[in-house]
């Protein structure tokens, strides 16, 4: 799949923002006054920036409000509704903490659940797609929610919890890659089933339908990511999970160390998320003799 920068930025940054909001909503840290202003501001800023970025890849962003209507069937719509609900329900909790030094934990708790549900809905946008076998698996929601929780823990200054979450994230990242590598073959789709001619013999593309490129090839057939998948995994795993975990082992509550861990984690997640898109193969590639 085409690794669109807007989608990578959106999923990583809004995931981190909602992760931080979940920790703040749970009341694990209870900042008040200016500290609360900056902390909640960071959470709202990251979550909001990610949502805005996601609007950039739309053909008609001016019709965006319609995306709140189809929550009954569409995970993308559910995500939009949940994201807005999280920001709205968190507001009394945040405002209470900032202006009256009096957070409202009830609102915070509900908002924390909504924040994690939002990240879950984001992941389901990808995990629901049977046409992309690598994504159509439970490891995707686990990966997204764990990444949000781990990144959020670092931003919320929860080094100890962050350590365990980062280790869990590392395990799930490796599992997602290992399982993902077998998903396409396991899906049962090949050139034979795509054309229905598999029963006659081995099917290969003789002539493509067009000599140039098209929307399908640009959007869904991406080869560069898979060629370098191994190297990118070796870059993403230490950056996103292992190095921040080591930092959290050394000094879990020293602010500069937390900042460094967040930056490493963020860089690693960008690489991992780029790979998440770039190495995912869509079954439509079978019609073009490439994947």
């Amino acid at each position: 799949m085409h690794p669109a920068p807007s989608l990578i930025f959106f999923t990583v940054v809004s995931g981190l923002g909602f992760g931080l909001l979940a920790w703040l909503g749970l009341g694990v840290v209870r900042p008040t006054g200016w500290a609360a202003f900056w902390w909640f501001g960071l959470g709202y800023g990251l979550a909001g920036a990610g949502l805005l970025a996601s609007a950039f890849h739309l053909g008609h962003p001016e019709r965006m409000l319609l995306a709140f209507t189809q929550w009954r069937s569409s995970w993308l719509s559910r995500e939009a509704v949940l994201a807005l609900a999280t920001l709205a329900v968190m507001a009394p909790h945040a405002a209470g903490a900032v202006f009256w030094s009096n957070p409202l934990p009830g609102f915070g708790l509900v908002a924390a659940v909504l924040a994690l549900a939002t990240v879950g809905a984001t992941s389901m946008i990808y995990a629901q797609l049977r046409s992309v076998p690598r994504w159509h698996h439970w490891s995707v929601p686990v990966l997204f929610v764990l990444a949000a929780l781990a990144g959020g823990a670092l931003l919320a200054g929860q080094g100890r919890a962050g350590l365990w979450l980062l280790l869990a994230l590392a395990v799930v990242m490796v599992a997602h890659w290992q399982i993902g590598d077998r998903r396409f073959r396991g899906s049962g789709s090949d050139a034979g089933t795509a054309t229905g001619l598999g029963g006659l013999g081995a099917v290969r593309l003789l002539e493509p339908p067009h000599t140039g490129s098209n929307y399908l090839l640009r959007e869904m057939v991406h080869v560069v990511g898979r060629r370098h998948a191994h190297k990118l995994r070796l870059i993403a795993l230490p950056l996103a999970a292992l190095l921040p975990a080591i930092l959290m082992l050394l000094a879990p509550s020293w602010p500069p160390m937390l900042v460094l861990a967040v930056l490493l984690h963020l860089a690693g997640m960008v690489v991992a998320r780029w790979l998440f898109f770039a190495e995912a193969e869509h079954v439509v590639g079978l019609y073009y003799g490439r994947r």
Partner: peptide, 16 residues
Amino acid sequence: DACIGCGLCAWACPYG
């Protein structure tokens, strides 16, 4: 008139 051009439906279709 209601399509926002997000492209998700094209991703969901196995047949392109």
